[in-house]
Design a binder for these strands. Structure first.
Lengths: 228, 228
DNA sequence: CATACTATGATAGTAACACTATTATATTTG
DNA sequence: CAAATATAATAGTGTTACTATCATAGTATG
């Protein structure tokens, strides 16, 4: 998959940025180092001024790409979900059997990301940690309805919808396919957070246990057999 | 339950506050109006200065009760979870049958709070909305491990543990009782958030549908019958 | 080759925020 | 009545989150 992804540019809603960061060297530097820096100091303490110092560039130049750090977070998380969606479609496309397809989908969306591979200026391991720690903050705001209308969350919603459709294919009679899909996406991030900070609140310790937990959960909820 | 609760004071970890807000008029005013104000403007735009103006008191006086607004949020959410724990214990205590007990527990922790009743200076309806919108922000920080060690999240953890124990009583062989409990608590808040802001991501629309969704989810996951 | 355009950098400035410190005043309690 | 305590008032500091303006370097175009 590595090479294929290198030639693909994920399309992010144009309203999120002022100038496409994937279109210039400075823009790519902003993406690369904002990921490193947000991971390091957390979103609250991250500022454009600090980022400017880090990349040897000016605060005002960064403002030409993103209105504020909230928009930058929206960009990074949109990128993450787009990347996730790509992996989902790529990995499940050829699977005919609906049950095996759903199983694969759960695996893709709940697995641990441990190696940074495909993209030059995006460290997927760190970005995943940012999504675990900061994604909620991108929508738990007073502007969420306005921003949702502007389409800032379309990629995430499309991903949830794809999962929901896969659930429906397996269990057309189940009443809560979309809720289950959103529980899966959100719950998976949460279990990883608990594993790192509240170990007493989860049994997920090993690298594949979040996947095992959710596979069991979904399959039992849909009352279908989980065979290999 | 109304009268019983009026005479009970929920105990919050003393390290969260500088001076017990439940011990004075000003303290109670701070609690009462911070709930109204955080609900109104959101946690990001909420400041002690604005709160001071609202309650006709001085910013510096509020600082004598809480170090900062983060601590105040920890206080309010701890109070919420303590209240939830109280309701859980109160409502399930007398139930002998483990399955019925668990069912009641799910009902208590996932139901919609629609009326403000028991406490004079705490509006439970607004507080619930604050928890839905802001609770994650209290732990998605760089200080979470330090604060967790200080015991700032004990009440929530105790509640999750109680749920986990109830799950174990029903299904001793199930491998993820605590993960399921934390998924229930966190997932329930999330479904309510989706209902209000991302309707396309949930089937939960009516007032009892979150409870129906999670009851079905938990009972199927534990492979037990859900009879009335 | 001149010039026009674009990207970036440098500098300055503002209002609000998140406090801390100090002093004054009002209220309660012994 | 004095002492202790709670609250209010005021001022001040460093940082944040920008906005505005001007300078400069590099590139494209005619």
């Amino acid at each position: 998959m590595d090479r294929l992804l290198q030639s693909i540019k994920l399309e992010i809603n144009e309203k999120i940025y002022l100038k496409d960061p994937q279109s210039s060297d400075l823009g790519k530097k902003i993406l690369e180092h904002s990921i490193i820096m947000i991971h390091e100091v957390g979103f609250e303490d991250f500022t454009f001024k600090k980022l400017g110092v880090q990349i040897g560039s000016n605060e005002s130049s960064i403002y030409r790409y993103f209105e504020n750090k909230h928009k930058l977070l929206l960009y990074l998380t949109s990128w993450y979900w787009g990347w996730m969606e790509y992996q989902l479609v790529f990995s499940t496309n050829s699977i005919q059997d609906n049950v095996r397809k759903l199983k694969k989908a759960i695996e893709i969306t709940t697995r641990e990301i441990e190696v940074d591979t495909s993209f030059l200026y995006i460290n997927e391991v760190l970005l995943t940690k940012i999504v675990i720690n900061e994604y909620s903050k991108s929508y738990l705001t007073k502007e969420v309805d306005k921003e949702n209308k502007e389409g800032y969350f379309v990629i995430y919603k499309r991903l949830a919808d794809r999962l929901s459709e896969m659930i429906k294919m397996v269990s057309p009679e189940y009443s809560f396919p979309t809720s289950l899909a959103s529980t899966l996406l959100e719950g998976s991030l949460h279990q990883y957070f608990l594993r790192d900070h509240f170990t007493s609140l989860t049994e997920c310790k090993k690298s594949n246990s979040v996947t095992l937990y959710f596979t069991d959960l979904v399959f039992n909820t849909l009352k279908i057999q989980n065979n290999g």
